[in-house]
Design a protein around this nucleic acid. Structure first.
Length: 201
DNA sequence: CATTTGATAACG
DNA sequence: GTTATCAAATGT
């Protein structure tokens, strides 16, 4: 289970396509021999060349955003509000700083590890937000730049019968980017309709 | 609605 | 180098 990984080419597609295709896929981490898995139920895209909400706008390279300018299929991890890590997937070819933020998961495996890390017994509160899912899956700065085809963190596609159809995907405005001017209204958030683990309604 | 602190940018 | 301002959130 969960050993099949998306190939590099998968991550070289457009961020918007990948962000919708990975809904229903499994995000896996294996840190300190502890396997944790969550089904991806909510994503957002940030397009560094044009998007005022993106850290890498306008194609701004800093030590923090540097990995976004590399090949797709690597982890962009950053700290927000001085306390919470967020996990993003770099997509596209070299020099295209587009990423997908993973906003929410449905806990699938290693739930006992998640509870210990997140300090709650309530499964519903383990991964229903971008900061919380990083705590539960033990995603920290250590994984900045990690290869998603590696052994510590990776994505595994759903079985064919579980692939999410386009008509199950809801689009919405992104969360927490009030400063992004005309980009606040872009429908660049994607989630599985009627899923219980969405971060916000 | 209060919390809380690393990253970034604007200095000198 | 030093300082000031802000931020892809969370818990209540």
């Amino acid at each position: 289970m969960f050993s099949v990984k998306y190939p590099r080419d998968f991550y070289l597609q457009d961020a918007e396509q990948v962000a919708q295709q990975i809904l229903g896929s499994y995000l896996c981490t294996c840190i300190d021999d502890q396997l944790t898995v969550g089904k991806i139920v909510e994503t957002e895209i940030y397009l560094g060349s044009i998007d005022k909400a993106a850290h890498s706008y306008p194609n701004k390279k800093t030590p923090r955003t540097q990995i976004q300018f590399g090949l797709g299929g690597y982890a962009y991890i950053f700290l927000v509000y001085g306390m919470y890590y967020q996990f993003c997937i770099v997509t596209g070819p070299v020099d295209v700083p587009d990423v997908i933020l993973i906003r929410a998961l449905e806990p699938i495996a290693g739930i006992e590890y998640m509870m210990a890390r997140c300090k709650t017994q309530q499964v519903k509160n383990l991964t229903n937000g971008p900061g919380k899912l990083c705590i539960s899956l033990n995603i920290t700065k250590n994984l900045y730049g990690a290869d998603l085809l590696g052994e510590e963190i990776w994505l595994s596609p759903p079985h064919p019968v579980d692939i999410i159809n386009m008509n199950q995907i809801q689009t919405a405005k992104r969360i927490g980017i009030d400063y992004a001017e005309e980009f606040v209204d872009k429908l660049w958030r994607f989630y599985i309709k009627d899923n219980q683990y969405i971060s916000k309604k």
